[in-house]
Design a binder for these strands. Structure first.
Lengths: 204, 204
DNA sequence: ACATTACGGTACGTTCCGTTTCGTTTGTGT
DNA sequence: ACACAAACGAAACGGAACGTACCGTAATGT
């Protein structure tokens, strides 16, 4: 048969080994932080050689990004009919995903593990998946609110979303504390009740 | 005279050299980012030896922190009689200081220079000066608003300040864009009009 | 059987940190 | 004027960790 032989020749890459490498990377990332993450130690914990790692990812940054993104799903877009509730669900979902991606566990002194997203080498690799996709979802969510008449047509969606995302980021990465759904609700309600407008030049 | 000879013996440290090292560090930080910042290159640009640097700061992180903090003054606490205006001034001041601390100039691809504050080694060294002091100022500012009756007594000051700080952080570090005073005003007004309460369990 | 690729292990070259050593220069106190 | 102490530039050094190259071995398809 003219089987295109899509699969490459030779011994196939061990998918389970890939999974174990990603898992160990995640663990060590939490335990030691990015700077303290040593490739050789990952290999040691997994019980494989460095070769196996570098065959899969070009460098430490790519491996880290893969490990972080592994636990980062975008999630369903909430649609309850109420913009405020949708925003709260959206924000809570983000926070949960972020937390799951990095767990709590033991930490490096003064280093919230989530701060790994700011590592200059890693950031470009996860920026899109972590922020842009969520932002698009949030924009859509607000547009639906406008259609329902819950928000003015010229609402500055970006500013609302950035405010909520910023709060999450600040609490999670800088202070290492959690935002309760109630706190999200108060902020979202406040923003929706007196929403920023596009152009944002007018005040009263 | 019984001059206590507070000054140590021998050749005194060159204050101007210290200044030039800090300046060069700031420049290179902007040009290459923290990871790309090499001690030897700082020495080369200044025209001194590495010894002169390591005599002044214990390591790269401390030097970086010193360079960032050099341009970061806390500033006067605004007091206009209107909480919203005070908040806007407070926030704008922060943003300006942050921007001045890292300038705009040439940047590393995908690396907002301000993101240096997140470098795990640097963060603990500048955290207090950069965030805590400002936060105390903001709390005081809100307390005055409560006394004036512009805010309820159980206002959750922390949540308001974190929201504003988070927005600044997100825009500046993640997106690399600037927040206009008008945008600050809209957010602040919205937060003050429907403020979060302590405990934050009640909604309406 | 054979070609091909992954695997673990090891040795290696490179970069950069931070330290140490050296001889020299500069300020201070007598 | 003189001696002392500390800063200075230059350079060599040890160590850590990255990422690569090579080995012999194991697994898969033809």
């Amino acid at each position: 048969m003219t089987r295109p032989a899509n699969e490459p020749l030779g011994r196939p890459t061990d998918a389970e080994l890939t999974a174990r490498i990603l898992a160990a990377t995640g663990e060590l990332l939490i335990e030691r932080g990015y700077a303290g993450l040593k490739i050789e130690q990952i290999a040691k914990r997994v019980g494989c050689g460095k070769t196996a790692i570098y065959r899969r990812w070009p460098d430490k940054a790519a491996l880290t990004a893969a490990s972080v993104l592994e636990h980062t799903e975008v999630g369903e877009e909430p649609d309850t009919g109420d913009v405020v509730i949708d925003l709260v669900l959206h924000a809570t979902q983000n926070q949960t995903n972020q937390a799951r991606g990095t767990a709590a566990a033991a930490q490096v002194e003064g280093y919230s593990p989530w701060r790994v997203v700011f590592e200059p080498e890693v950031f470009p690799l996860i920026w899109s998946a972590l922020f842009e996709q969520r932002r698009d979802q949030g924009v859509h969510l607000i547009e639906r609110g406008i259609e329902r008449g819950q928000l003015p047509a010229d609402t500055d969606a970006e500013l609302i979303l950035d405010t909520i995302a910023g709060l999450t980021l600040y609490r999670q990465s800088v202070k290492g504390t959690v935002i309760t759904p109630d706190q999200y609700r108060v902020i979202a309600a406040s923003l929706v009740a007196d929403p920023p407008r596009a152009g944002s030049a007018a005040r009263g």
